[in-house]
Amino acid sequence: MSAVAAAAPAAVVPERAALPTLNAHRTFAGVMRGEWIKLLSLRSTWWVLGATVAIMTLVSFAAAMSLDVMAEDPLTAPALAQMHGAEIVSGGSQIGVVTIAVLGALLVTGEYSTGMIRSTLAAVPTRLPVLAAKAIVLAVVTTVVTLLSMALSYLVTTPQLTTYDLVPALDDSQTWQILGGTVYFLVAAAFFALGVGTVLRSTAGTVTVALTVLLLLPGTLGFITLDWVETIVSYLPLPAASAFLSTGDMSELGGSPLTATAGLLVVAAYAVVPLVAAAVLMRRRDA
């Protein structure tokens, strides 16, 4: 009994070539548009983005206000002279990096925790375009939000910066290095979280890793003065980023032993390595 095949009585209906009348064609642009809709149709996205803008602006404003205290204290007053105004404007990035990392994590872990990933990968079974589209969408959103935060910060800190003659000049290359570097750093942090999130598939786990690497480790290890620990710390994302985010050696983190270029490369590694691991695992694992 060639059971299934032969007994198909309805084989009267041949494979009608005309059947799919719907015009459907998968493209990478389509996959990206899908990711856009995904990102913008979640309330959590708007919460995280709103929080990022608010926190970054507030921290920057607070930094500007603390200039008064700095100026009065004879210990810190000399530092004021070496400070660049753009550092104040981008001052919220150390906190913004955390909310942006949460966004990067949620973009993929939200899919794994709800089961959405199975719908996603059924639509795009080659899988890697999904990761690429997520990374691009994330980079765009992060850039826009960071620029918006810094524009707002610029507005609210200008009166205070004027007092100390620190308003960042738009024709100063250092201004653009710091502002551009901030965008670069936050995009890298978002990629880091996206990569780790794809590997771990868990929101809690990813956020914990991101918080630890981005904030906790530089903070806690910073108190240890052993040489080799200090070397490790300088290669953590935040200290490495300070190599291109601060101008003088007056950074609160105590400056970076890395050159600006080395800092850029180290930060890039934090973005690229998890993403490569994510790509390999995403292709290989069962959804």
Binding site: N23, G34, W36, K38, L42, G110, T114, A123
Partner: peptide, 29 residues
């Protein structure tokens, strides 16, 4: 077309948005 798991949907998204994300990948109207 596969229905493998009724829960293969992000709970925070509306039904229509969910379908739109899927449709977008294939440029379905």
């Amino acid at each position: 077309g596969a229905l493998l798991d009724a829960k293969a949907v992000h709970t925070g998204r509306s039904a229509r948005s969910h379908l739109r994300t899927m449709a977008a990948t294939h440029n379905i109207s």
